[in-house]
Design a protein around this nucleic acid. Structure first.
Lengths: 381, 381
DNA sequence: AGACTAAGTTCAAGCATTGAACGAATGAGG
DNA sequence: CCTCATTCGTTCAATGCTTGAACTTAGTCT
């Protein structure tokens, strides 16, 4: 510990504050000073290395009103970027993201990953990452990798649908193949992160619920994704709604997943794919509408329980649930209204995610840009 | 913002670190320096005002081994204290607590509060507080007040069993009657706090579950009691275990409370009071054993759901459940083992609280001592 | 052209921590 | 009894961060 570590910490903290303000929106030094509570002098000082390092640019002066015109600062359009990647049962996806939160490129390639070995999967992901990073010479800060399963200490410890990945240190593997610093996380957590970083959808804490093969919830508490001790937090799919109900693959009975999982909805509706279901719903198919309504009821019971435990003001339905939102939300809402304790006094908001199918990769990339902003020393490395 | 606010913040942060180390256990300046990572010089500096202010005392030198003997520092036996108070349906309780975590005095008086007005209740609480504080001339930092209901922004917004208290600013009322700075919180949260402050029972995050009239859970995440946006977090009593089950007073159906609440257990066992039930259990009464086992199963389902959402490593059974623990835990454990996802890889620990009937008041007092340590500037006010 | 306004920069002052040097208090060994 | 080794605690100059105030810059307004 050097003699001035505490001072360096103060400086890094202020740097973080400034960068966070800039993620929110660009601003001149004076504006940033007002927004962060720091002084103009400190801002001059703090932004100097960011400008020199190519992290920020000073825009030509804005001509507005009296006084010396301000020169807004924003993230350098040629500055560092992050890559997000997603491994899923039926597709791979990648996206590149700037510090300003702008998406540069996206790819989504259908691919059956069920039987592929971990090494094969990573090879494909690495190839895709090279593809999107080859088109630019901007510095790549690192990669985030989303997997449909529970991740703890960088190791996949549970993936019901991609058993080949269990126990594999995916971050190390992908790191070797791409030369990047890689972080792995659960897709539900990353989808939730995408709704709070870099732009905050709800403004407050929330839970983001997705259906894929299973049902996962990404829980955001105190502005942070909450993962639990071993990465199992937010397993909404295995919340029990009927103690003696349908047996679940997890060993329990009456799990929400058995009533509101996408596979259940499709089976009940007599459809094979989400697209087909959506068309049936649009056409007013009674069987489809009924299947979705029933799933909504079961999901509503689960969400009510979740809300009674987490007490978040907002629930976001994402993934397939966002697609089905119009036909789903009334049933969910109705169960919640009858069962959420705080319901009477304060209404829990129910929203459809606006992010579409790229929410997860965007969150994966966000993991990296967010860390860079929160630990600004990384930007200078 | 004065010119050196950031430095003062650093100092307060270090002061907090030192006080936290002292709550853990007394130690000399050199020892504290080693434990906190600060230097001996800083410790000399930091402890000087604490000694001068009567917060700490320097003990006579310990004669141990070679070198200059160390003079351990610990909290001053005449230093400031905190009061905790509890309002419950059938009793009031108070306790005084030193910064070192030692209980000075306790009172528990049976009293039916159901029909009392808020003012009458507060008068009685204030009288009890005066009783326990009159016996000492130590400075009283403030009071914590526990109520069996949901508290948000200092206002009681839900107390199923003490309706007179709803909407009342209890903190202000008790503050006027006692002249103390008062903080109000839910009894479940405070019982949980008592298990983590000043000594940590589990070492990690946990959920503390109590049964009284309702069932409440105090949730400790990242070392802090988690309250949710509006204080409704941890409402385990209204977690649904049978979507079409027994109708609950909350408007929902199949809430855990309807199957594992203390009132339900007593009714099923054909007893009027917990004492009587306990004796029946000890005597091997089949009806009593069965009632408790059934409640344990329902509770286990609810706790499994809770664990799948919060992913905490430990669940503590407190209050009446601690009393019934020996006859309860097998049923709870068994449902958890079958339903908790992480169960296979990592066992969730199930413990009985060792704190007994004073857990809640102790937590209420702890609210005050904890704040004093975390915001050391309060100690000098 | 001169007054006015607001942005951005410069600079001395203030301050908590730090490492090193120093003083203090004791045990061990001769 | 005296000296050395050892550990505790204090003193002090140095470090480098933010800050407010003064100052400079670059525009608008009349």
């Amino acid at each position: 510990m050097t003699s001035v570590d505490h001072l360096r910490q103060v400086r890094l903290g202020n740097l973080r504050t400034v960068l966070l303000a800039l993620v929110d929106r660009p601003g001149s030094r004076a504006d940033l000073a007002a927004r962060t509570g720091l002084t103009k002098a400190t801002l001059t000082n703090l932004t100097e290395p960011l400008l020199a390092g190519g992290i920020l640019v000073e825009e030509p002066a804005t001509l507005a009103g009296m006084g010396r015109p301000s020169k807004p600062l924003r993230f350098h359009p040629g500055g560092p970027i992050a890559v997000g990647a997603e491994i899923n049962v039926s597709h791979l996806a990648v996206e590149t993201l700037g510090l300003d939160g702008e998406t540069l490129e996206r790819r989504l390639v259908p691919a059956d990953m069920r039987r592929a070995t971990a090494d094969e999967v990573l090879d494909q992901v690495a190839a895709l990452i090279r593809e999107v990073t080859a088109t630019t010479d901007r510095k790549v800060l690192g990669a985030g990798l989303a997997v449909p399963g529970v991740v703890h200490d960088g190791v996949v410890i549970r993936t019901p649908n991609l058993p080949e990945l269990v126990g594999v240190r995916l971050a190390d593997g992908l790191g070797r193949k791409t030369g990047l610093d890689v972080q792995v996380d659960n897709e539900a957590n990353l989808a939730a992160l995408a709704h709070l970083w870099p732009r905050h959808l709800a403004g407050e804490d929330f839970v983001h619920v997705t259906a894929d093969v299973g049902i996962g919830a990404g829980v955001v508490l105190n502005g942070e994704v909450y993962r639990g001790v071993s990465g199992f937090a937010g397993e909404l799919g295995h919340v029990v709604i009927e103690r003696d109900g349908i047996r679940c693959t997890c060993g329990s009975r009456g799990c929400v997943e058995r009533y509101a999982g996408l596979d259940v909805i499709l089976r009940e509706a007599g459809r094979r794919r989400l697209d087909s279901l959506r068309r049936a719903l649009a056409a007013g198919d009674a069987k489809a509408l009924d299947a979705v309504r029933k799933a909504g009821e079961a999901l509503g019971v689960g969400i009510a329980t979740l809300t009674n435990l987490f007490d978040v003001p907002t629930v976001v339905l994402g993934g397939s649930y966002a697609v089905l939102y119009d036909h789903l939300h009334e049933a969910v809402r109705s169960e919640m209204d009858g069962r959420v304790l705080a319901g009477g006094e304060r209404h829990t908001r129910l929203l459809a995610s606006p992010l579409g199918e790229f929410a997860v990769v965007r969150g994966a990339a966000g993991l990296v840009t967010r860390r860079a902003v929160q630990q600004p020393e990384r930007l200078f490395a």
